[in-house]
């Protein structure tokens, strides 16, 4: 069978589908001071997944927490990668209490594209990954 670390090189999704892969990628991103991008990506997925079994109040609290931590500060690594229109859309949702399971989808896609084009290829060439393999 293909060893997991070879699968990680196939696509970002193969990497993010494996616990050890996530751990190593996060170590790399931490070194590059952009681990928040990965945490944000998972927070968006988690947010979307929770809607079925969580009450509205918890969803609102969570949406506010994600907004505050990653989007509100314009100098944050995540906030800098998200388009202004996407940020105002999320801000609007939070302010008007329009909590929707898909409200972070566009922002997540923008961060994912950034990782696919930038940090993920760098990771595959990094010492951290090469030493691991």
């Amino acid at each position: 069978p293909t060893p997991p670390y070879l699968k990680w090189a196939e696509s970002l999704h193969s990497l993010l589908d494996d616990q050890d892969g996530i751990h190593l990628f996060r170590t790399f991103l931490k070194q590059e001071e952009c681990a928040d991008m990965l945490d944000f990506w998972f927070a968006c997925s988690g947010f979307r997944k929770q809607e079925a079994n969580e009450g509205n109040e918890k969803m609102l609290k969570l949406a506010k927490a994600i907004y505050k931590k990653y989007i509100l500060d314009n100098n944050g690594i995540v906030s800098r990668q998200i388009k202004p229109a996407t940020k105002s859309f999320i801000k609007d949702c939070v302010m008007k209490l329009h909590i929707d399971p898909a409200m972070f989808d566009q922002a997540q896609t923008e961060i994912q594209t950034m990782m696919e084009e930038n940090t993920y290829p760098l990771f595959l060439k990094s010492d951290i990954y090469l030493e691991y393999t």
Partner: peptide
């Protein structure tokens, strides 16, 4: 009551793949 950070951490963990 969960603090915001706990809530966020719980949300992030819920999206991670389970150990194979």
């Amino acid at each position: 009551i969960d603090s915001e950070d706990d809530l966020l951490q719980e949300c992030i963990s819920s999206a991670m793949p389970k150990k194979k």
